[in-house]
Nucleic acid binder design. Structure first.
Length: 102
DNA sequence: GGTGTGACGAACA
DNA sequence: CTGTTCGCCACAC
């Protein structure tokens, strides 16, 4: 069973992911720091990987720091980002143009 | 309880 | 630009 503090940590993390505006993206490390967990990028990736398929969390807006779509469902992520107005080229995004916080 | 691994990231050659 | 090395941490074996 997850600890209360662990649950709280995940909640804070997902809250931060939820705050990424439509049409913008962020990186694992940036989200981790914004949520109050510096240097926990890998943990962020792990938590997102365990989200249910029907979640409302915009996990597709979280990319690698260089703009790479690194998730296993990169097709879905690419599709959703494109529909949000984010230009995706070769499974990559121009981080400098869409990064949040800007 | 050591070891390998991963939706990471930064520094460096 | 690519590849290497290291730090990081949860987890499976």
């Amino acid at each position: 069973m997850p600890t209360d503090s662990e649950q709280e940590a995940r909640d804070r993390l997902l809250l931060t992911v939820n705050s990424i505006p439509r049409g913008r993206v962020s990186s694992f490390g940036r989200i981790a720091e914004a949520a109050g967990f510096p240097r926990r990028a890998r943990w962020v990736g792990r938590v997102l990987s365990q989200l249910p398929a029907d979640t409302s969390i915009p996990w597709h807006r979280v990319l690698g720091h260089n703009g790479d779509i690194t998730c296993p469902r990169n097709d879905i992520a690419s599709d959703r980002l494109t529909k949000e107005g984010v230009a995706v080229h070769d499974r990559k995004v121009d981080m400098r143009k869409y990064v949040w916080p800007g």
